[in-house]
Design a protein around this nucleic acid. Structure first.
Lengths: 209, 209
DNA sequence: TCGTTCAGTGAACACGTGTACGCTCAATTT
DNA sequence: AAATTGAGCGTACACGTGTTCACTGAACGA
């Protein structure tokens, strides 16, 4: 009942996934990944690839899924750091940047395929980003008592800024990355302050009627 | 002195650029563009390509340059139009979204290669984006009397938001694109208001010392 | 008018690609 | 013990790729 056979299959499946990851560098993206090279690095014959994936796209979607999984781990981490106190904005941005730093290849894949050539890829990644935004919206409504519409505007803007900064961080050295992180924190606070001012203005208007 | 020869060369050069544009679709990005196909569509032999560009990368960089130039000219125009009244934020965002809509292929190219696999591309596009930001910074300092640092934070955040929204607009239908445009205008105003509040707070602090 | 320049050509080359096919042989089932 | 399954292999094919090279002939400068 050990399933020697199934275990071995899973093992080489992981080898294929790992091989694909390894070949994803700044210079060599998923689009230019070849079935043969991936198979070679995984230590199997090119034709054996088909025992595991119908084609390269299917492998790619698997990678995106795994990337999304890791991204949700980040979200959980971030939420825990908020719970134990400190600046919500600072700790969230720091956690995000740390993720980008530690999962270089995956974040790069997500970024590239976000505006890549496969609609299926684009939709899959858009879904991931929406999760991120939705959780931020919930936080703003429940913890900060923002009106839904204003919370959505704010959250969407913040996510755009943070992801965009994450993209820039990929090409940056350590020093530049620190600068970028601090800048992002300031920018997110700018948005938060703008939303706060907007809320205050709305209240004044309403009470002045 | 007409330069029949030079004129003809320029003509087929334009044909090559146009051919490359035509082949840039949502499903078929620049990376998977082939020299031979581009040459074929331009109506010349594959080998003649080299009379105009050293390789495909050079062609791509030309496209990036042209796209960036066009966009900057449009935005400058739109900024000048505020002299005759109207919201500068609204008209700038509208202009930008119109560009995205009318120059689908180029904007897609900019987006993809922004986080693509060629360092030279990434740098070229980063340079274009810096141009936008720099012009916005100048405007904020000269026309709105912001301090340099605050102007830079603000401008950078705005550019990130707008470009990110532009990216989403590529996959959106007309209705969704309108919603996205209005949302972006609100978000940019959020940032502007946050910067305004920050400036006001700083002045209060200073005069209170 | 005569030599030079040079955009465009066509054949050829070496290479990497995806994938179809039939085979092996150990794990598994009957 | 015998039959079946299926992961992995090796060969082979057709195809598109970038790039080389020697060439043609019209536009050009002297």
């Amino acid at each position: 009942m050990a399933g020697i056979r199934a275990a071995q299959k899973e093992k080489t499946r992981r080898a294929l996934i790992q091989a694909a990851m390894n070949q994803l560098t700044a210079e060599h993206g998923f689009a230019s990944l070849s079935l043969r090279e991936v198979a070679r690095e995984a230590g199997i014959a090119p034709t054996s690839f088909y025992r595991h994936f119908r084609n390269m796209e299917e492998l790619g979607l698997t990678l995106v899924d795994e990337g999304g999984l890791t991204l949700r781990q980040l979200l959980r981490q971030s939420r825990q750091q908020i719970a134990k106190g400190g600046s919500i904005i600072r700790s969230s941005v720091l956690t995000f940047m740390e993720f980008v730093n530690n999962n270089n290849a995956i974040f790069r894949l997500l970024l590239q395929e976000k505006s890549g050539n496969s609609k299926e890829f684009r939709l899959a990644i858009a879904r991931e980003v929406e999760h991120f935004t939705a959780e931020l919206v919930d936080y703003l409504i429940e913890e900060q008592q923002f009106a839904r519409e204003l919370a959505e505007m704010q959250a969407d803007a913040i996510v755009r800024i943070v992801f965009s900064a994450g993209a820039d961080a990929l090409d940056a050295d350590a020093k530049e990355r620190r600068r970028l992180t601090e800048q992002t924190i300031v920018q997110v606070r700018l948005v938060a302050r703008g939303a706060e001012a907007t809320r205050a203005a709305a209240k004044t208007t309403k009470s002045g009627e």
